[in-house]
Simulated assay, not measured.
Amino acid sequence: MANMAPASPRYRRINEVYTPREFRKKGYASALVSDICLRLNAEGITPVLYADCANPDSNGVYRKIGFKENGRLLDTRFAERTAE
């Protein structure tokens, strides 16, 4: 399973790539993401993918497909402020 965010004129983000545990390491996610990328490229749209740096399996898959790291995002959370 993979989701695509709404397209901008030049880019489209692929996210929420998921394979059930019993089907992992069989090439399904690689084939799906590769196919999505080929279709986007054929439309002149550059695929973009956000990946979890802590997941070496998915990152390996994305590198094999041709994705390259182009930066990192910072996840910031704010603590709830209590009234005094």
Rank of each mutant, 00 (worst) to 15 (best):
R63V: 09
S30C: 09
Y28P: 02
G27N: 05
K26V: 02
F78W: 12
L40G: 08
E43C: 09
K25H: 11
A5I: 00
F23S: 07
S58W: 01
I65C: 03
G71R: 01
G60E: 03
T46K: 07
F23H: 09
L74P: 07
E84A: 11
C37E: 07
V17A: 08
A7R: 08
I45D: 01
V61K: 04
F78T: 08
K64Y: 02
N15W: 08
E22G: 07
R24C: 04
S30V: 04
T76I: 15
T19L: 04
L38M: 11
R39H: 06
P20L: 13
F78M: 15
N59R: 14
P9G: 05
L32V: 15
N70L: 03
P47H: 03
V61M: 11
L49I: 12
I45N: 05
E16H: 15
A42M: 01
N15T: 12
R24I: 03
D35W: 10
V61T: 10
A54S: 14
E84C: 04
Y62Q: 01
T46M: 10
L74K: 09
A54L: 13
P9N: 09
A51T: 14
G44C: 05
C37A: 10
P6A: 05
D35C: 09
A29F: 08
A54G: 02
N15E: 15
T19Q: 00
R39T: 06
C37D: 03
L40N: 02
D52M: 01
R12W: 05
